[in-house]
Simulated scan of single mutants.
Amino acid sequence: MIKGMTLVREMASGDALDKLGRLLLSLGFEQGKGWKDETGRGTALLAPLGNLELVAGRQPAVPPILIEVIGLDAIHTAVQQWMLANYRTEEVDSLLSKPEPTHWNSRLFTVRLPEGSSDGLVLGFWQSENPLHGKPVAIEGDLSAAGMRFAIVTARWNAVITDRLLQGALDGVYRSGAAKADVEIVRVPGAWEIPSAARTLAESKRFDAIITLGCLLRGETAHYEAIYTEVARGIGQSQQDTGVPHAFGVLTCETLEQALDRAGVKAGNKGFEAAIAAIEMVSIQRKIRAGESGS
């Protein structure tokens, strides 16, 4: 079974080895276990991922050692500063290239270190321009709400909070392309009544998603936890039974100040976040169903 891969390159001197090792460690490599005996020494530099690429026919016009990075421009600046500290300024221009686009949807720069092996050591640093590069293939939702229908269930209790949550949710769906005619708002007395209204709306099959908004403050009621548990269970059960996504925007806070922070004052707006989650879940469901029908 394959466990790992090691690429061994000769450096001209111990000083060159140490200098390059310090540079690569500063860029994000991890220090591995080195070795030393009477014939020489080595430094192990570990990267999170290693690849072995085999080529037949035309050899690609890339350096033999390619290092994939995040933040290519910052890496280039760090390498340039290291080069200026170790080589004459007039040499750096010929040894270090600028980041340039490649034909394989990425950007790349190279650096040649003369004190490597006989022909020098050439490193290529590159970054993919594909935002999904390296990620497992997955179905992900889009954030366009055009053509989607939403019901928003909001509690009147603690209206100073829930009204802010409602405005955040409306901002989220409208900004994402939903038409006002496709959004229906239902007000219920308190958080306890949210699951019942949400289920009725979901069972009507008129909506692609239900957005639930409410606020429970621990200091206002002795049965805070019991209410929250039932509200969360009821919303979740409605979602499971009907198959209609329910976005959870019910705040559970210790104080009014905490609730205000989560309703748009300091910590974002939970109503907006719930709306975005609802849009994404509708998109995911549509993609899954489209895949099933096309298979």
Rank of each mutant, 00 (worst) to 15 (best):
L143Y: 08
S176R: 07
D208H: 11
I194T: 07
L217K: 06
E68D: 14
A247E: 05
L24G: 13
G249K: 02
R199A: 07
K98P: 00
F248I: 01
Q167Y: 01
E203R: 15
K36V: 11
A277S: 08
K3F: 12
R175A: 12
Y228I: 12
L84N: 09
I279Q: 09
Q285L: 02
V111L: 06
I227W: 08
G50N: 05
S283V: 01
A155R: 04
A178E: 11
A56K: 14
A145C: 09
T212Q: 01
G264Y: 07
D241S: 13
A274Q: 06
R262Q: 09
A178K: 05
W192A: 15
S196P: 00
G14E: 09
H246L: 09
G34P: 03
M281E: 00
G21N: 11
K270D: 03
V186D: 13
K98N: 10
E115H: 08
L108A: 09
H133C: 01
I139M: 12
G234T: 06
G177S: 03
L213T: 09
I139H: 02
E220L: 09
M83S: 13
L121T: 00
R175K: 06
S118G: 08
R156K: 13
I279H: 11
I210Y: 00
F29K: 09
I67W: 12
E184P: 00
I67G: 10
S144K: 11
D208T: 00
L251D: 05
T102C: 10
R88S: 12
E90Q: 12
